[in-house]
Design a protein around this nucleic acid. Structure first.
Lengths: 200, 200, 200, 200
DNA sequence: AATGAATGAGGCTTCATTCAT
DNA sequence: GATGAATGAAGCCTCATTCAT
């Protein structure tokens, strides 16, 4: 079938890269994991770098796509924010491998890393839009910088997911864990930590 | 001064490791940067790994120390939170190199990475304590999980700093940038994004 | 025409091999240049080596053929020498690609290289015969070793052509260049460089 | 001692490169032949290419040097020509390995090859100067192009040497072989092949 | 304390060749 | 006849580490 091998390599590459990081990952391992010869990888991809970049591009695309799908056409900003939160946590949790790469391979001056930061910026902008919309409608507090706030939220989300994924003592099913993280983040973002005098 | 050479190596190592990440960094580069022979590094450190770990340990120590210093004995939880925020952002911003390493070299199963996560946990616990204290005093809203909230806050802080450091188009002095980030994070954490009916 | 594909491959192979030399040349490039799939080349030729040898054989054959044609039945040794010179320079200049391969791929102990030297010997023998004929008729000075002299002449011819082909600053049409080279070589071979007392 | 290892590598590299040509030669073989580890070669040379170029540069330098030495201050053009011939043949014969590389690795567009051709040009110019000097003094026949003639002579010399070196059936001591080649070339260059009417 | 030459395991990549379609 | 995906042996190069001085 068309692209079956490529699919296989792709899949294995995610595993291997996520397990070891870009530098530590060995093409040999990707090949073994994919059940193909080393040369086959080079037949389909120009090299380690290209394979990795293709991978991350794909991951980002799918993530953005899924988030859009889950947010749907919900008009209410608060509900939109919740949906986005849910979607993002869910995806990152599901693809922890990808989450890890995103956070660890995005800081630096190598070209690839700049591209990754650009991708992150896309995610951030998704959040930003919601914040702006909410502020315009008056249901969200106006921010000094919607962009900076969005960045902070993205950081909170991704690090929360990663910290959870790498916690040895975590319990419960994935669904429960995700629900917990989402609820927690939602609480923080929506209400802040301080007791507001006007609320019960 | 005692250990001038060691100091030199240490300093250069921070630069080089931060610029390239652990794997990409070359002992050769550290040596050249420090103006010593390669052998000298191995005379003072057991190896690349040890040098790096010593580095990170040192960075974390100094960070914790500085944060403690800046938080002082402030009893009011909200002010404590603000001081902590200010201290953490300031330190990470100042030592962006360290911030980068912390975020990119902490996710994985290599022993060193586990140690880093433990260090992160220390930072998180600093935040956590403030949250708990605030909740006990009644000025902070009780959280589902103070720990998770603290993690989220740490993520927000560190990613905000990194994103800012790696933004090519950022303007203003460092002090201004830091102040902006702090204010923004404070706003988010303290009040959340939603307009609460009881506030003006 | 019969063997159109083969013809295509052959033609492309000359180009590619000449451009890169035997080792550097890639079957992939030959295939791309010929507009066929890589497998097709292996369908028609046993391998890289065979393709190359076939090529060189063909080149030598055509060269010998053309030289014979141009020398015709000229009985006078001096005129024969001139015709041979003209023919050889012309052919090598025209097929510089071939000339290059001949000079660069003929020295070594690989079987193929021995075969090439044998081919060169054929060319040398063409020259040798003329020298011997001339010596027998008395119009040529007797040589210590007609064979060695013939080799030297071949070297002079081929290197002259190559040096000219690879001179970036050469000017004039091909015909002019060839005529120049021929005239020069003729002068050298026929008269030597020393002024003989008996000549004007 | 200073540079002993480098000397060793150099020497081995000549052997290996000459035996196999640039592409076929393996750094591994050079290392084994030199009795050092592979890494040692890379400690002293940037890579295969640099090693090779350094080699050829060195070879050309020594050759030019030796030729200059042997030609000395001889004022008479004819004797100068003979000395040069003798020196060049002697050197190439002695360093057949180098001769082979010179002739086989000099034709192409790779930068290194351009450098080699430049080196060849130096040799050619040595010859050219003698020709010009002789022509000015009136003892040499004026040439259409002294440069082209010099090139032809260089070609005759180098190919003669190589052909001889690779002749399986050659007999006699090296000195005899060299003497034969020199005499033959001298005869060809000095007098040409044609019987001049004015000589006995 | 410091040096830097030497090492060699390890990883990336190339490319001639095969073979099922 | 022709294809092109797949292979894997082979080779170049890197770099952490060692050690004699």
């Amino acid at each position: 079938m068309r692209g079956e091998t490529i699919e296989q390599i792709f899949h294995s590459a995610v595993e291997v890269f996520a397990h070891s990081g870009f530098e530590r990952a060995k093409i040999d391992d990707v090949a073994r994991h994919a059940g193909v010869a080393k040369g086959t990888i080079y037949y389909h991809f120009k090299g380690k770098e290209e394979l990795f970049v293709a991978l991350m591009r794909d991951g980002m695309e799918k993530m953005t796509e899924q988030i859009h799908r889950q947010m749907g056409r919900e008009p209410d900003p608060l509900r939109r924010l919740r949906a986005l939160l849910q979607a993002q946590v869910e995806y990152l949790y599901e693809h922890g491998t990808f989450a890890k790469l995103l956070l660890s391979e995005s800081w630096g001056s190598v070209e690839r890393q700049q591209e990754f930061r650009a991708k992150i910026r896309e995610l951030v902008e998704l959040i930003e839009e919601v914040l702006i919309q909410g502020a315009e409608e008056g249901s969200f507090r106006p921010q000094m910088s919607h962009h900076d706030t969005a960045v902070a939220m993205f950081g909170a989300i991704s690090v929360s997911v990663l910290q959870d994924l790498f916690s040895p003592e975590r319990t419960g099913t994935r669904e429960e864990r995700v629900a917990g993280l989402v609820a927690n983040l939602e609480k923080l973002f929506v209400d802040g930590v301080v007791v507001s005098k006007g609320k019960t």
